[in-house]
């Protein structure tokens, strides 16, 4: 009995296959936990849903479509252009600098409410000064690699 028990607990890991050993355990664990959640909470969730105590609305009510998707769009554009422009000026960090300025400007204008002249000027200054300072101090003084 003791013998078969220790056999049950013994493992032999083939090095060439060892990269899947732990991930498999984790995936089983994830699957079991998911089942457990469904079993324990699933029914109550459905009942709540029927009774209208819970909704499956993903976004908040009246969510700000422009600002949310605008942010994602601007960020994607920012990353793509940064890489692209960076290749034109190798190892100078100019890709970062030249793309960060318009990026910061567009995001600020996207977020700001009740735009007035003072805010506009501040946004412009902020969008120029912040990336330039970051580029100069980090990229040039500290020699950090920038796109």
């Amino acid at each position: 009995m003791g013998d078969s028990f220790s056999k049950l607990l013994s493992v032999n890991i083939d090095f060439e296959q060892s990269h899947m050993f732990f991930p498999k355990i984790i995936m089983w664990l994830l699957f079991l936990l998911f089942l457990l959640i469904v079993v324990l909470y699933g029914r109550k969730f459905l009942e709540d849903l029927k009774a209208g105590r819970r909704s499956i609305r993903f976004f908040e009510e009246n969510f700000d479509k422009i600002r949310l998707f605008g942010t994602i769009g601007v960020v994607i554009l920012y990353f793509v252009l940064m890489d692209y422009v960076g290749v034109l000026f190798p190892n100078t960090g100019l890709g970062f600098l030249l793309v960060s300025i318009p990026f910061m400007m567009s995001l600020s204008f996207l977020y700001v409410h009740d735009l007035n002249k003072k805010k506009t000027i501040i946004i412009f200054l902020n969008s120029i000064i912040a990336p330039t300072a970051a580029w100069y101090i980090l990229g040039n003084l500290f020699n950090i690699t920038l796109p």
Partner: peptide, 20 residues
């Protein structure tokens, strides 16, 4: 507003010049 655009334009031009 217009002034701000000018500032930006000048800035970009200067950077490009320095690099060139």
């Amino acid at each position: 507003m217009k002034q701000a655009w000018k500032v930006l334009g000048v800035f970009l031009a200067v950077t490009a010049l320095v690099w060139a």
